[in-house]
Amino acid sequence: MTRIAVIGNSHLACLREAWAGGAIRREGRATDFLGLHGDGLLDTVIEGGTLRAASDATAAQLVRLNGTDRLRLDGVGAVVVAGCMMAPATAARIWRDMRWWGLPSLHAAGDLADLEAAFVPRAAAAAALRAHLEASLALRLARRLVAAGVRVLVASQPRPCETVLDRPRPLALSARAAVMAGDGAHLSAFHEGVARAACAAAGALYVPQPEATRIRGMLTARPFTEGALRLAPRPGQRQPPEDAIHANARYGALMLGAIWAAVEGRQAA
């Protein structure tokens, strides 16, 4: 029996739902989940092979959302940190402020004098993105877990839903703009390379968003976001209709499949 533990923020919900749905359950596999909104998981400690709440308030929140305030780490095959701002959207915000050599829109523009964003070395943009990812909740948790001797995987947060092309959403304006400028594929590859390196430097394995769920580089295809659930005490609570950043159980099944493949060594993440 191989047991993995998945911790995360609201992006944990799609994985939990997929597991509950049984699509990727196999004999010999067990998966525990522990989720908390925002950066609440920072208020935890690892002691005696257990990750538990560091305060009564966090313990109460964990119990409310998960039925428990702790996660046993001893004997776990891997801990997966899901979402927690390991987000391609961060690369889009970098793109909002900067342009670099190799971006299709840059070469299409011709005269760079009119460029509103800063033109920076690609290495500088990568360093900026990496700094943001290293400061993300995902890698802060990952470093703690690695220090505790646990094998850690970091599962990417999903890209914004393609619906933002028709209905712009405040949280996805930059990703939308990058896609519309023709930079989606380039930006996606840029993010993946930096994220993989940042995770490796933290001692963790990066699990990217499944290729089949992506569209135009920086977006998630609608079938993988419709009906996304919230991380909530009661199962089945849906994200509001205007939500464009959470994925659904169909997505969760593909991501969990990729996670298990990486854990079982069948496929490099």
Partner: peptide
């Protein structure tokens, strides 16, 4: 100015032209 250097001569020249502008 860029500790990690640039990926190509073309990138260096483009960045310098932008800097001068």
């Amino acid at each position: 100015i860029e500790p990690l250097g640039m990926g190509s001569e073309a990138e260096v020249l483009a960045l310098r032209a932008w800097h001068l502008e």
